[in-house]
Each structure stands twice: as structure tokens, then as C-alpha cells.
Nucleic acid binder design. Structure first.
Lengths: 335, 335
DNA sequence: AAAGACACCGCAAACGTTTGCGATAGTTTT
DNA sequence: AAAACTATCGCAAACGTTTGCGGTGTCTTT
């Protein structure tokens, strides 16, 4: 017995018919007699025939595959996004090819390359923190491969987008802190060249402004990972006595900050309040549970996938859309 | 300008040579003159030529793609595994196609199907909780597609495996609890048809045995997610007063148990000790930090990928191997 | 009985690539 | 000067599939 999977040609040979007849019989083409269809289909079934996706892709000039590039799959947000993408894609007959940039620009370029080599029909991308040049994406678009950016979007490229209302989310949570009576709110900020980092900072700034509190740059730290937080622990602890609250750009950093403060005998929220962004599962696992802003990764992935598939099928030349998910405040124990 | 990516034929046409010449020139075949090689390569460069992976796959009868099936990508352990797989695979010229079974047997079968349709060269699998039948895997192996099982292995199929020493890990952590003086240790167990669930239970049983403590079935609950824990909260709380410690089959469940206990005025570890398994990042984020067993997902993924690629290239007919990672106890504040 | 209609099926090209083999020159050897 | 060799290149098949077109044979219509 041949070890490889059966091809349409194997079936043709076994049944003494031509490959075209087999091909047509398998899809009940009216030109083929019922008798032949039955025999072909039965035989195909018996040898577990399955069409070769590569051959189909070559022939049809579309791979039915969507390429996905995210910074790091280990972040719950991004893995949720991927789950959403997968569910929508598989439901529409598309396969998904996932790559991680590991927040590395060069890796991102290589990822794009690899996906293009596989002739993916479209791309779903969340750009890395270190990406400042976008030519690899414009190359893709020049080849008529549509891209939908998710969360970490790229404003320099006109395309579809799926984002959270980061500005409003940050404004909401900082307003919440101000309403609790906080005057001096530290912001652990993300990279300002990314829209998510910038918008959350702007939301922070706006909330302060609405409460007539001047922005104190000293209390805005570029610090968006537990690692960076640890590296700047002394700076943060020296600021802490004068601080009412901490608003971190993501939940990991917020939790790390909370632990740092608690380990130094601050009580949360009594002495200092802490809030994050993203509503990671960890937010409900820590004590006190973390106040944060909901970010619906699964839905965003699903929507991005839907937009891409739509562009791949129906309306190729529709104007680019930006789907913005509203931000919901999740008030918990930490504030 | 043509929108699609340039093919070897486009280059041939543009330069007035044959496709075979282009193909050879691109790889500096000695039959082709330096002059021609240079011209072809320069032109290919200028149009950003990249070989079509599907065409290559068809021709070479190997896709250079590895299929991966994991239960749920949102679990840190599995996303670490995937990172390890990716790094090793990409480093060896392989691409990775990732599927989630969502702990659903039927979905797993579909995943296998989809990956076979794409003619992946090999499979990396962690089986779902609901999988009791393994014919979809033996079909794959009959087609000469090697499988390496990771963590959630399948003993009914002879294949390569990468696992953690679950038995020893559980024995270690339970022994640790017993050494702390615990007499009545509750076990929140995983599915017993999965080796991970069974081995961890056996390790628990063995540790008790070594301390001459009889196993009390009443204190062994099938409960391996925060959701199930919540559903059985009353049962757990009624057992709690007589309980010294809780050993959960994974960290999420352990953390959920810890929260449940804390919310009901138990103090951890003073009144009751809690331990998990897996060393998820959340273990260090909660207070008290969770004692657990390290499980090196990234390394396991990397190793599984390495074993698969090895079998794909060097030694196709080598005996099947099982790589067992030792279990290390991580003692933290919760015990 | 000739002609059209119909049912059923095969040929071959195409998708992009590789590769064994043959072809054409020019150059060297005898 | 014939033979042999070398350098350089093209033809065509193959991988698995789809599909337009053409080709049978049978049946119905006039």
C-alpha cells in the first residue's frame, strides 16, 4: 500500500476513469452519471481521499489561509484575539497561520516574508513595540494582500482596523480615581509611538485636565512590563509617599506595581489605589482584585477576521473601516 | 504592473530565457553562466521574487510545515509550548500551523483533518480532555506522518513524547505539605483518563503512602478549572474545616481555591495551605505567592519540535523516544 | 433515414517549481 | 579534419487539481 495520501489520479487509475471524471464526480457535476459518481465517491471515501490544499491553492491562486502576526502569544489578550480569529476563520473555510514577532521588528519582517511566501490571502496584524518602519506592510498591500490591524494599529498605512477606545478607557479609569479623591496619580506608560500607549496617556492627561489638575511629567514613567518596573523600583518607591494612585498601561504592570507597594507596607487601596488596563484574568485572581478596563480580545479577533474575510470575498474595494470597541470600566477592590 | 507576486516564469519572460534557466540561475547552478546568474538574480531581487511555497510543496512532496494541536492557546503553558515550537521550527526552515481543540474531541478530529489537508510534514499534539478515541491519530501515522505528543500524551499510540515527570512533581509537592505537618490534604484532580491527571493523582497517593496516611477518596475531587471549583464550592467549603491543605492539579484551580478559602475567612497558609502545579505566571502574582511545580513549557515545545524535525530528516526509523523533564518544586508563601 | 439533441466522458492546459535529458554552439583533442 | 569535449541553455514531465472544449455513443425528432 502506498503510504502517502491518495490523489485524484490514484482514484482514477483504480477505477479506470480519467482524472477529470473523478474531479467532477466528487462534486456531483451533472455531466457525470449517478453510477459513476457513486462509485467514485465510495472509493474516495474508502481510501480517505482528501484534496491537497497546496494543489488547490496553486490552481485557484488563493490559499484560503490567513496570516496572523502578534507580538507575543503568551499574553492573554493576544491569545484571546487568536481564538476569535480562529473561530471565525475556520467557520468560513479559512485556515490560520500564526506568527509571533516577539516585539522584534526584524522578526516581524521575517514573519511577513514567510506568510507572503505561503501566499496567504490576507494578514491580521498587531505590530511590535520596536516597529518604527512600515515598508514591509506597504509591500504587502501593493501586492493586493489586504491587512487588518488589530489593537496595535499602524496609522501610517491606510487599512481596516479593529481597536479599543483606549483614550476613553484611560479617561474613564483615571476619572474614577480622581472621583475617589486622588490628586497625585502616577502613570506607568507604554511606548508613545504606539497608538495604544499614546491614547491611554492622552486619556490620562484629559481626565486630569477635566479635574483641573496639572500634569506632572515626573509622575509619568515609561514602564510597561513587570521587568521594567522592577528595574525602576527605587524611583517608584521614592515617588510613592507622595502618590495617591497608580494607573498602569496594562494589568501585568499594575499587578507588579501593587505587589511592589504591598511588599513595602503600603496598603491597597487604603494608602494607594492601583488600576490597570485590559482586564486580564489575573485581575480577578489577585487580592485586592484589580480595577481595570475591559478589552475584548476574543471579539476583536473575531471582528478583524470577519472584516478581512469580507474584503477577501464581497467588497474588495470598499472604503477602509475602523471598528472601535467601547471601553468599559471594571471597578474592583484595588481602587 | 501585475499585482500578484512575480513568478519564475515572469522573470524568464522578462529576460528572454527559459524558466529552467531562471530556476537554476537562482541557485547558482554550474550549468548557468555567471553572466546569466547575475542578471537573473538582480532582476529577481528588483521584483522581490520569492518562491511560492505551495508550488514548492507540491513539487517536493513536503510542505515544510509542522502542524500543532493544543487544547487552548490562552493557557500560559500551551502558549509557552508554542513559542518553543516556533523558535525551533523557524530556525530550521519550517513553518508552523497552529490549531486549538478547545478541549473538544470533534474539533480535534477536524483539526487533524485540516492539517492533513495541508499536507503538514509532522504533527505536534497535546490531546484534549474529551478525547477518548485515538483513531484520528493512528490514521495520521499510517500515512507516515510522524506525531510527537506533548504533555497530554496518548499512551495508546506508540510515538515520540515530551512530558513532565508529573508523578514525581506531585509526590514532591505533597511530600512538602506532609513535611509541613499536614494530615488531611485535599486533591483537586484532573481527568483520570489523561496521563497528566492520573500521574499527578498517583504522585499524591504515593506521597501519602510514604507517610502512612490512608487515602480518603472523599478528599479527592474531580475539579480542574475555576469554573468547576465554583460549582462545587459548597462541597469544598464543607470539607475545608477538616482540611490541612489543598493540592490542585493546576495553578488556576489552586488560585481559585485559595480565593474561595480566603473569601471565607481562612488564612493561607496559616489555616490551610495551598499548592498548585505548573508554575503559571499567576503563581507569583497572587498573595500569598503560590507554591507549585515548575513545568517548562517553552523547553518542552522546543524539544518536541526538535524531535519531530529530527525524525523528519535524519533518522526516520529510530525507536520512539520519551523525553521526560524533571519536576522542580517551587516553594512560595502559600505553604 | 438523416439529423439534431443529449448524456457521458477524456484531453490538455494551467497554476509555480524542479530536474533529467537533450540540443546547440564553440573549443579542444587526435 | 573528424571526433570528442565543454559550456550553456531549453524541453518536457511531474506534483494534484480544475475546467473549457471536444469527442463518442445513444436516443429522439422530422
Amino acid at each position: 500500500m502506498k503510504s502517502g495520501q491518495a490523489s485524484i489520479r490514484d482514484i482514477a487509475k483504480a477505477l479506470g476513469v480519467s482524472v477529470s471524471t473523478v474531479s467532477r464526480a466528487l462534486k456531483n457535476h451533472p455531466d457525470i452519471s449517478e453510477e459513476t459518481c457513486r462509485k467514485v465517491q465510495e472509493y474516495a471515501q474508502s481510501v480517505h481521499y482528501r484534496p491537497n490544499a497546496m494543489a488547490l491553492g496553486l490552481k485557484n491562486q488563493r490559499s484560503m489561509t490567513i496570516g496572523v502576526i502578534v507580538p507575543e502569544i503568551v499574553h492573554h489578550f493576544f491569545s484571546s484575539v487568536i481564538s476569535g480569529i480562529e473561530d471565525m476563520a475556520y467557520g468560513n473555510g479559512y485556515r490560520v497561520m500564526i506568527c509571533q514577532s516577539n516585539e522584534d521588528y526584524r522578526r516581524e519582517v521575517i514573519n511577513v516574508q514567510a506568510l507572503m511566501d505561503h501566499r496567504v490571502d490576507g494578514l491580521l496584524v498587531s505590530i511590535s513595540k520596536t516597529t518604527l518602519d512600515y515598508n514591509h506592510f506597504s509591500d504587502v498591500i501593493q501586492h493586493d494582500i489586504p491587512i487588518v490591524f488589530m489593537d496595535r494599529v499602524c496609522n501610517e498605512i491606510s487599512s481596516d482596523r479593529v481597536i479599543t477606545n483606549d483614550f476613553e478607557g484611560a479617561r474613564l479609569v483615571v476619572t474614577h480615581l480622581l472621583e475617589r479623591g486622588c490628586k497625585k496619580i502616577m502613570h506607568l506608560a507604554g511606548p508613545q509611538h504606539l497608538s495604544v500607549g499614546r491614547d491611554r496617556f492622552e486619556g490620562y492627561r484629559q481626565a486630569l485636565k477635566e479635574f483641573n489638575i496639572p500634569l506632572d511629567e515626573e509622575y509619568v514613567l515609561r514602564c510597561d512590563t513587570p521587568g521594567k518596573l522592577h528595574a525602576r523600583r527605587n524611583q517608584i518607591l521614592s515617588l510613592a509617599p507622595k502618590t495617591d494612585a497608580v494607573f498602569a498601561v496594562n494589568d501585568f504592570t499594575a499587578v507588579a506595581a501593587m505587589r511592589l507597594l504591598q511588599d513595602n507596607d503600603y496598603r491597597v487601596p487604603e494608602n494607594i489605589r492601583v488600576a490597570g488596563f485590559g482586564d486580564d484574568p489575573v485581575a480577578t485572581m489577585v487580592r485586592p482584585a484589580l480595577t481595570t478596563v475591559e478589552q475584548r480580545g476574543y471579539d476583536m479577533g473575531k471582528e478583524a477576521s470577519r472584516m478581512l474575510i469580507n474584503r477577501l470575498t464581497d467588497d474588495k474595494d470598499k472604503n477602509f473601516q475602523t471598528k472601535t470597541y467601547p471601553a468599559f470600566l471594571k471597578v474592583r477592590e484595588s481602587t
